[in-house]
């Protein structure tokens, strides 16, 4: 198998690379681009740690081939952090200690921001439902739900 040329945007930067067809997007981001904020927890699409945005929508990067992202726009936790897009969400996570080991956190933030973009005032059940594909072994989820709820309120200009 020979590497195939791909060209895509990653966190707003144009990236040209040669990849083997079997390389998945998670490994491409981590090993080729050294964007190690995208984590790999199961490699079979269950844990959600590798969640990134492709063309604005969250996906499991372990279930997409790098070669399928030709011309796509890929955003990782590094991009969302640097742009400031989720600064308030990260602040809420920090204030609420909504992470312990932090391994699930990039994927969790991706999923949370996805929900907050779609729904301005999700209730706790909707938050839990939207996160239901993102595994966290440390927190028990409640602090994460709290942090997202707080962010939703503050984005909606409300206080709890």
């Amino acid at each position: 198998m020979t590497p195939v040329a791909i060209s895509l945007d990653v966190n707003g930067e144009r990236v040209e690379a040669h990849v083997l067809p079997r390389l998945n997007l998670a490994d491409f981001l981590r090993e080729h681009l050294k964007l190690t904020g995208t984590h790999v927890g199961c490699e079979h699409g269950i844990c959600g740690a590798c969640t990134v945005r492709v063309n604005g929508e969250i996906v499991r990067s372990c279930l997409i081939l790098a070669i399928q992202t030709q011309d796509a726009s890929v955003e990782t936790i590094e991009g969302l952090s640097d742009s400031g897009e989720i600064a308030d969400l990260q602040r809420a996570f920090r204030d609420r200690n909504a992470l312990q080991c932090g391994f699930c956190t990039p994927g969790m933030l991706m999923a949370a921001q996805d929900l907050l973009k779609q729904s301005s005032e999700p209730d706790r059940e909707q938050i839990r439902e939207h996160l239901s594909g993102n595994y966290c072994r440390c927190t028990g989820y409640q602090a994460i739900v709290d942090a997202i709820e707080t962010t939703a309120w503050s984005r909606a200009g409300r206080t709890p």
Binding site: G45, G48, T51, E57, I58, V59, R60, L63, I64, A111, D114, L115, H130, S132, G133, N134
Partner: peptide, 8 residues
């Protein structure tokens, strides 16, 4: 499944 899966 879940939102990220349903997106693909």
């Amino acid at each position: 499944a879940h939102p990220a899966i349903r997106n693909r």
